[in-house]
Design a protein around this nucleic acid. Sequence first.
DNA 1: TAGGACCCGCTTTTT
DNA 2: GCGGGTCCTA
Length: 688
Amino acid sequence: MISKTFQEKFNPSQQAAVSFTGQHALILAGAGTGKTRTIIGRAAYLIESGVSPSKIQILTFTKKAANEIVERVRSQFPESTAISLKGSTFHSWCNQLIVKYPNLFGASTYTVIDQDDQLSIMKMVCGEYKEDFGRLRLKPQQLIDLYSFARNTRKNLTESIRILLFKDRKDRETEYEITQQRPYIGNLLKAYQSKKGNSKYLDYDDLLLAVSTQLHQNEEARRILAMDLEHLLVDEMQDTNPLQWELLKPFAQVCRLYCVGDDAQSIYSFRGADFRNVHSFKERVPDSTVLKLNINYRSTQHILDLANWLLARSPIKYDKKLVSNITEGSFPVVMNVSDQWQESSWVAEEILNGFQQDDKFFGDHLVLSRSQYYTKTLQAVFIRKKIPFVTYGGRKFLEAAHIKDVVAVLRILNNPFDEIAWVRFLTFWDGIGDVRASRALGNIVAGDGSRPIGTLVKDALPGQDGEKIGDLIGELELSKGDVGQLVTKTFEAMELGLAYKYRKDWQEKRKADFEVLQLLAKSYGSLGEFIGEGLLDNAANLNKSHVLSGSELSPSEDRDHVIISTIHSAKGLEADTCFVLNVSPKVFPSTRTLHDPEAIEEDRRLLYVALTRAKNRLFITRNIDSIQALTKGDEIINEAKDIPTESYFLSDLPDSLVEQRTYEHTFDKPRDVGTPNTMDLSSGMDFS
DNA sequence: TAGGACCCGCTTTTT
DNA sequence: GCGGGTCCTA
């Protein structure tokens, strides 16, 4: 049954996509063509057609996107109609499946670990296998990257080493080097893997791998999951990697796949994303149809002209030319600045102008940067000018050191084999360092698990310290069933130590986070859920972007403020006015990608994503010095001499597409910024 | 063995 | 400006 507004809400190609009746579909949707609207419409359409909401699963890459889609579908129906509709990230979905069917996936007690934990384990392994590690000139982090890359791309170790460490070279020397190093790397990775297994850890990749492997091997598993699922709606298909494809593939047999994506917005190849998952969809999935959405409802034609120009210059054929249904509007502005202070000041001025003169809200402004790091100056200026802002991307709440200290206790109670949590917890206390902790650890983990944790600690760590810590953890174990209470008690017990450990910024910054942690903890039913889902839940990414309102944990999104985001985190966002920072030579494309044509194209797509976030006004900043260096033909050109591809995306930018300006005010630069190395004390004193 | 002081290198992007 | 590593001292 199609609702009355259907024709009004969707254009003909969107209608075709939303009401698709075939088996499997791939929707190719350019930026701003209503991708989210279509996936929402699809879910709503299915529910209206009588599909049970509980049999629809929406998959996205971030929790935020998942929540938004689900909420918007639910709001179209009377109260509880669509309450059972599910939306999650790939990782969280797999985690839920593993929890729901423990027998099927063979994991009962486990702990999901993040990249910090992975690194800690790898460091332990490198310490244990000194000889192997010593023969390599690699950092533990590189080993982790290698391991993850190989698993996500389904490539073997040799190929992974070649791509990640040798820039994909295939000459004889490289072959020799790889043959030399591979056995040692292999040993370390195997040791890492078995340590991970012993501690009952699952890293992010394991979550996907566990489910995917089982589905491929086990027909029973497919049958069971098929009973729960009729429609799988996948967002951002261009960002899926081979491992995720392995996960999706079996579902083509048990339910209907509906994948939405845009190959021109594929920006996650560092995570193994492969847009052949889009390009080869039709060949890979029998009985599938490809539909396209081409009309852009977001941006003015001027903005799209620039985006189209950028894409047209790529050697890759995207078969895409966005056409806007908005014809008026101003040209994108390219602002030439000579340093970051100018850049930040100008952005701040523009925003304040917009706010005061043009009746814009702070929330109408989106500032995009290539890296989180780069926006620091901007944040400083915003604070001084009292411009409210939130940042997207960056370190997550649960990854902050002081939070991890407290969470370590919860992890221990959840999984007594969790060595990392043990070390963190034990060394937290004054007088216990790495050495005593890891010694004690051997005894604790060797225990049979049936004895109370408190006595285990006392045995492993004789003396006063052991008594104290053993009593504490024994006491805390009593609150295991109540996550909120457990967090409160743990914090009380550790508060003194925390205040001392983080004395530099405890009062100002860190202390308040524990109120947030408590509220967050209360929102989870069980310890296991909090540990597992909490980590995977991007909504837990409430560093500074969330505030406490009343007794509720709520995103401060309902307040008016500018959004500062990395481009990667900005996918799916849009704003009236959009600033793209530092689109300078050496940045777009980045100098680190210049050796690799594919990486350059990914940088191009990254810029494309940034440009297409803007609805009405697009401002691009760039460093004038680097532009002049480029035209003078100095080192940048020389570096790029033997590289056929262009070295700066905007180098031949036609004047007809943008308006160029140069920043003129200089008074805004704070006098006291810079590096006063020595203070001049020579004057005012006569030593003669 | 624990912990503090100091120095260096460098700084994409994320579940 | 930050974490990480290293060296030095109690």
